[in-house]
């Protein structure tokens, strides 16, 4: 699934990274604890979160994630948006709650990140 499809399926707004919407999403990971994102989200994952602080962009960048989708109309501040542009991490925002967001994307065939993958160390 591409980011463009995610945008259409969820009627999401693109906050930044308009030109990167053809990016293919490897898997999805939904969480608001950064440590879990760093430990468990796989490279190329779409992060689904309600957490909009700049740290989430740094974490996504450290873990080479594909993009961040904010739920329940959460919108990051200007500094976080600028950081995301600089890091080339597209940001999207949907009005759906996290539960509904996961449910709909799962229904459309987006896969979860694999459990307990020792990525990068194989």
């Amino acid at each position: 699934m591409t980011l463009k499809e995610v945008k259409e399926i969820l009627n999401a707004e693109v906050i930044s990274g308009d030109h990167d919407l053809n990016k293919e999403i490897k898997c999805a990971f939904a969480a608001e604890l950064l440590s879990d994102v760093l430990a468990l989200a796989q490279e190329g994952a779409l992060l689904i979160t309600g957490f909009t602080h700049s740290q989430v962009v740094y974490a996504a960048d450290a873990a080479n994630l594909c993009a961040i989708l904010f739920v329940r109309s959460r919108w990051p501040n200007e500094a976080t948006q600028q950081l995301a542009i600089q890091k080339k991490i597209p940001l999207l925002s949907t009005s759906y709650m996290m539960f509904e967001t996961c449910g709909i994307l799962y229904e459309y065939g987006l896969k979860t990140c694999a459990l307990k993958v020792e990525d990068g160390k194989d």
């Binding site: 604890l33 950064l34 440590s35 760093l38 430990a39 602080h53 740290q55 160390k121």
Partner: peptide, 18 residues
């Protein structure tokens, strides 16, 4: 700390893992 998204107790094991 937890409400900020930190402190899930995964930090040190994750350093070791990587």
């Amino acid at each position: 700390i937890r409400e900020l998204g930190f402190g899930a107790g995964m930090g040190l094991p994750n350093i070791k893992k990587n």
